[in-house]
Simulated assay, not measured.
Amino acid sequence: MTHVTTLFLLAFVFQVSPAALASPTPPTVTFTFDRPQVQTTHYEITLGEDGKGVYRARNQQGIDTEAPIAVSPQNLEHIWAEAKATDGFRKVQCETHLKNMAQTGKKALTWTGSSDTGSCSYNYSDDKEIQKVTSIFQGIALTMETGQRLAYLHRFDRLGLDAEITSLGNSVKTGWALEIQNIEPTLRKIIEDVSLMDRVRTKAEALLNNGK
């Protein structure tokens, strides 16, 4: 190899940007919810195609929380199928055409790829698939919010645990609360705390077993 050729190759290597050498950013889908009137005024759930993601929330006191989550293949399939069918939520009318709908919170679905994004925002949607995706994300959020309340009650108000865990059980049965495995650490602590009422520990164990 000649001296000139060597210099040419070195020049080429140093001209390649770090971004070009980096792996493409995996795509994600994010659901965002905002409603100042409720205790959890803001939350967002971001998921990758592998079903792993993160839940972030802020309450009325301005306290931020963040926790990793994982979603079952069945629910993940619904979410990503809709993202792909609508070209990253760009080819769908998310907001209803109906007038005077009650305000149930500002919602947004966002798809983010390595070089572009797509999104739609809505209060209420007539689209059945958007409704399904919304209910999945809201079901995950309900589980995470309840998990936070259970952790708080376990520390500061143990007598309140029975009613809260009973309510969660009812929400799971009706399909309102989803992906219970994401609060397994909290349920596990309740199960292992022999100072709690047996019925509370039994309900926590049943929830955990049904979530697997």
Rank of each mutant, 00 (worst) to 15 (best):
T2P: 07
T2S: 12
T2E: 09
H3L: 07
T5N: 07
T5V: 11
T6V: 05
L7H: 09
L7R: 08
L9F: 05
F12D: 04
P18F: 01
A20T: 06
L21E: 05
S23F: 10
T25C: 05
P26M: 12
P27I: 01
T30R: 03
F31H: 13
T32V: 13
F33G: 11
D34I: 07
R35Y: 12
V38W: 14
T40S: 11
T41H: 03
H42D: 08
I45Q: 09
I45H: 02
T46W: 07
L47E: 13
E49R: 14
G51R: 09
V54H: 13
Y55M: 05
R56N: 15
R58I: 10
Q61L: 12
G62S: 01
I63E: 06
D64N: 15
D64Q: 10
I69F: 11
A70E: 15
S72A: 08
Q74G: 08
Q74P: 05
Q74M: 03
Q74N: 04
N75I: 08
E77F: 10
H78S: 03
I79S: 05
A83Q: 12
K84Q: 15
T86P: 11
D87N: 14
G88Y: 13
G88W: 14
G88R: 15
R90Q: 15
R90Y: 07
K91P: 03
K91Q: 12
K91L: 12
Q93H: 10
H97D: 10
H97N: 14
K99T: 09
M101H: 13
A108N: 02
L109H: 08
L109F: 08
T110E: 14
W111L: 09
W111E: 02
W111V: 03
G113L: 15
G113E: 04
S114E: 13
S115A: 12
S115H: 14
G118N: 03
C120Q: 11
S121Y: 00
S121W: 06
S121N: 13
N123F: 06
N123V: 14
N123S: 03
Y124C: 02
S125M: 02
Q131H: 01
Q131K: 12
S135I: 00
Q138A: 01
G139C: 04
G139E: 08
G139S: 10
I140C: 11
A141G: 10
A141I: 09
L142S: 03
L142Y: 04
E145Q: 15
Q148M: 05
Q148L: 06
A151I: 05
Y152Q: 10
L153R: 04
L153N: 00
H154G: 06
F156I: 07
D157G: 00
R158N: 02
L159H: 03
G160E: 01
L161Q: 05
A163Y: 01
E164M: 10
L168A: 11
N170Y: 13
S171L: 10
V172D: 14
V172S: 14
K173C: 11
A177K: 03
I180E: 00
E184F: 14
P185Y: 11
P185S: 11
T186L: 00
L187N: 07
L187V: 00
L187G: 00
K189Q: 14
I190H: 04
I190G: 00
I190Y: 01
E192H: 06
R199N: 06
R201D: 05
R201S: 10
T202V: 11
T202F: 07
K203T: 12
E205G: 05
A206F: 03
A206Y: 01
L208T: 03
L208G: 06
N209V: 13
N209P: 03
N209D: 02
N210S: 14
N210V: 00
N210I: 02
G211P: 09
